[in-house]
Design a protein around this nucleic acid. Structure first.
Lengths: 109, 109
DNA sequence: TTTATATATCGTAATATTGCGATATATAAT
DNA sequence: ATTATATATCGCAATATTACGATATATAAA
């Protein structure tokens, strides 16, 4: 087929997968790192700093925005992007719990 | 085009994206949750518990294995899967740092 | 109002992912 | 050696992603 069977998974599993997927691209990691560094970031700066076309950057920003990971505000002619705190903290906690639940190598194979 | 321009990103960005991508599917989240819960997991159990065909589960396991997130050991006729501690801790630390580097909503837009 | 600048959207080609039936492989039991 | 069981791989169809040129839109300046 070619489409994920979301209906057989829990809401939490689908949500976590969607958020991870939104982050799972080197360009989007780079964009987030850039935003984390200066708290804020104008779209145009990314086009210069990463080596991707403007349309491509815009598309990556859209994906991060659709996932709720970043938010954008109109600032004159340009648009200022920054982290969406709610989703950020949610994912931070979810992933924190997820990774911490590993009990180590005992009884492993 | 349709292929990621890995050459313009850092090794770290590419690696992190690859690991996140391997986890970014509800079935693979479910598989990891199952392994985390009982430390270990036989492939056949997953086929029963999740509602996916044996070929599909096997493919998801392969992706997690290729990414280095899990490891498999032959155990008689079946195969026992468990977490690969090194990669797990690496990703845990990387993501921990990444999320913690968010300085909050000050100077945001 | 016209022009310049910044960003978004459209359309498209190349490639990747998802899921599964069919089949291959590999170990254990008879 | 044959048979049963568990897992992997192949091949394929449907769909999604990636990247980008071209174009649309929207704000600011002249």
């Amino acid at each position: 087929m070619g489409l994920t069977k979301t209906e057989i998974f829990t809401e939490e599993q689908n949500q976590m997968a969607a958020l991870l997927k939104a982050m799972a691209h080197p360009a989007r990691i780079a964009i987030l790192q850039r935003i984390l560094k200066s708290n804020t970031c104008i779209c145009g700066d990314l086009v210069e700093e990463l080596g991707l076309a403007q349309a491509t950057i815009s598309q990556h920003l859209k994906e991060l925005k659709n996932a709720g990971i970043i938010q954008g505000t109109i600032e004159g002619v340009s648009i200022c992007y920054c982290i969406e705190p709610k989703t950020w903290k949610l994912l931070q906690n979810q992933l924190g719990d997820f990774f911490a639940s590993y009990k180590g190598e005992q009884n492993c194979c």
